[in-house]
Amino acid sequence: MNAVRQLGNGVFSMNGREWSLLVACLLAIIIFSVASPHYATSGNAATVLRNSVELLLIGLGMTLLLAMGGIDVSIGIVMGLAAIAIGRVLGADGNPVLALVAGPVVGALLGCVTATVVVLGRVPAIVGTLGLLGVYRTAVFVLLGGQWLSGLPASLTNLLATTVLGVPVPALVIVAAYLAVWLALRRTPYGLHLLAIGNSEEKARLSGIPVIKIRFVTFVISGILTGVAATFYVATYRNVEMTIGSTLALDAIAAVILGGTSILGGKCSLIGTVLGVLLLRILQNGLLLIGVPSLWQPVVTGVLIIGVLGFEAISNRFPVVQLLRARA
């Protein structure tokens, strides 16, 4: 039922949590603008958006995984492995077109590996990907062999730094990825099946949904999106270091949870994920601008998770709030 109701949502239509996140973003922007004269500048806005690109792409994939009751804690290192492939291609002959393909391909392949263990091996996703996290990390070390890929040619950077009709390429890619995932989720049987699996895998199986196929494909989609994120990473930094992506998985999970996707599956919000990523980045940026040391940033992330979800849990208990919500 839940899934069917959500099918009616428009591309950018929003529910209660999503409105609160939007209000929180705007409120934060207003407060920071008052507190710091340097906040509301176009340069700073560009900085915030630029720093959200990888997390947005990975977050979209993570949204799908959580919505079907899965998870992937190794996703940051998958980005690292894809980045190594891109870096090697780029370093060999500087051909940016081949490099564009390398990321998504390696991402998809690793998605297949993860899916083989988790889906075909029927191992709980959190533990299975925890094991793979270790394996992938060793692969990163061995492939890099202690040397970073440094000073990569700028051909890929130049290609992705262009604008089409005045819109920067990264923004276009993110909008395209968003629309593609949204369409798959809300306008195809795939999305319906995904949410049904998230609600109850057992019931989904009994009603004839190809559970294994859907779950397998979702891990591959997440891998592809991560590969695209890796492409932007390499284009931006022209450097692949050993610690690449080590904090991304937990950040992505945090953003998706903030956005209102349930980790029990069955409920999912793409626009919520986008707003969750932006809220995290806006707060990290703004707090530094008003002089809070960067070491406090993880604390802010944690307080935000507990605060937002805790507040929702409490407010659900008061009938007045529910009444107001029903009327709205």
Binding site: H38, T47, E54, T247, L248, N285, L288
Partner: peptide, 13 residues
Amino acid sequence: ERAAQISGDLMAA
């Protein structure tokens, strides 16, 4: 990544 994020913020601040 984090180094880039923080440096960008520092320049804005």
